[in-house]
């Protein structure tokens, strides 16, 4: 690939603009489906990860941003975590642009980096706004640790990082599954689609 100067605007083609609502809907529907099937996972960032991988950091970030805004309409608690979803999209997108997601090992590493960084970013609101316990699936464990005298920060981070890493790895694998079934002629129209063609010329 020839390196040319990219501007943020180049990432927002008509097609990627239409990808954003899809990404957000995948986040929301994925999350709902996970809770409907009573899975012990959130699975609510599949869309952010997916758009980041095929359309780069800015489209990924907007998908993350918009997800928390629209889910905030019914559950305003999500407004406090907008930055977390944005970071997921941004980091995934930047690493995707660097070609990390064309390779299993690097893809896994990128997913772990992204999960750890975004979990750390979610800690301040959890600690300061919600006192370490948000009512999410893992907060019971955190609550027990806090009650046992551990600091709020360690209680939240130690539990949440492990959990998030697993959650995001699954989400990444599902994204890969989706990319597998998208035909090359469609894939090639996305900003980073060239990286993932099944039949390279």
């Amino acid at each position: 690939m020839t390196q040319k100067k990219r501007s943020i605007k180049d990432d927002f083609t008509m097609l990627t603009i239409l990808l954003i609502p899809i990404g957000v809907a995948v986040n929301v529907v994925g999350g709902n489906l996970a809770s409907l099937l009573k899975l012990p996972m959130y699975l609510d960032t599949i869309g952010t990860i997916f758009t980041g991988i095929i359309a780069g950091p800015w489209v990924g970030a907007v998908t993350g941003l918009l997800t928390n805004i629209v889910t905030g309409i019914t559950n305003p608690v999500n407004f406090w975590f907008i930055h977390v979803n944005v970071i997921v999209g941004l980091l995934t997108g930047f690493m995707a642009r660097a070609g990390w997601f064309t390779d299993w090992k690097k893809g896994l590493l990128a997913t772990v980096i992204q999960s750890v960084a975004s979990t750390i970013a979610s800690a301040p609101p959890v600690v300061y706004v919600f006192g370490g316990v948000t009512g999410s699936g893992t907060s019971l464990i955190s609550a027990v640790m806090i009650a046992a005298g551990k600091s709020i920060w360690t209680s939240f981070l130690s539990v949440e990082i492990v959990w998030t890493v697993i959650d995001r790895i699954i989400s990444w694998l599902i994204s890969l599954g989706v990319m597998r079934v998208i035909p090359d002629r469609t894939l090639v129209k996305f900003p980073l689609g060239n990286l993932y063609l099944k039949n390279k010329k």
Binding site: L18, I22, L37, G177, V178
Partner: peptide
């Protein structure tokens, strides 16, 4: 069992939406 139901419920949806998005661009234009 429940986890296995997740993937086939989601992937076809995304695929239809993405391939539909191409035509949606044409529609909007």
């Amino acid at each position: 069992v429940r986890a296995k139901a997740f993937v086939p419920s989601l992937i076809p949806l995304v695929l239809t939406a993405i391939t539909g998005a191409e035509e949606r661009v044409v529609t909007l234009e």
